[in-house]
């Protein structure tokens, strides 16, 4: 999950979504950076994980059409990472919740 190249700090103003930051409330997408799929857990002891599982962790993601739990960072705001449940087809956001909380 840390493989995504973070977005350049310089962006245009083309982002459209209104994202509910769990700390700051609704903010425009332009303040956020996308962080890829959520709940991809890095094992506490990576040594104990076999190659297949580690490769899965490194490279395999769901990419669904529909509901998707994904990470965002309020980069130009409180700076916090958090999770969002977004429908990738309709773009409607159903929930946002803090790191460590489970998908509602």
């Amino acid at each position: 999950m840390k493989l995504l190249p973070p977005r350049s700090p310089i962006k245009g103003s083309q982002e459209m979504l209104l994202i509910p930051c769990p700390y700051c409330g609704n903010r425009p997408e332009i303040e956020f950076a996308y962080g890829g799929e959520a709940h991809v857990v890095r094992a506490a002891a990576p040594r104990t994980v076999d190659d297949t599982a580690w490769t899965e962790f490194l490279y395999f993601r769901k990419n669904p059409r529909g509901d998707h739990a994904e990470r965002w960072r309020h980069a130009y705001g409180c700076g916090r990472f958090f999770n969002v449940k977004r429908n990738t087809y309709t773009d409607q956001i159903e929930a946002s919740y803090r790191i460590g909380e489970t998908l509602p």
């Binding site: 103003s13 700051c24 332009i30 303040e31 130009y76 705001g77 409180c78 700076g79």
Partner: peptide, 20 residues
């Protein structure tokens, strides 16, 4: 891109954001 209506951004509010 923020809303500066007093209801949305009251006096005393302070936040990091973006300007261009």
């Amino acid at each position: 891109p923020l809303d500066f209506d007093l209801a949305a951004f009251p006096v005393g509010m302070a936040t990091r954001t973006i300007f261009c």
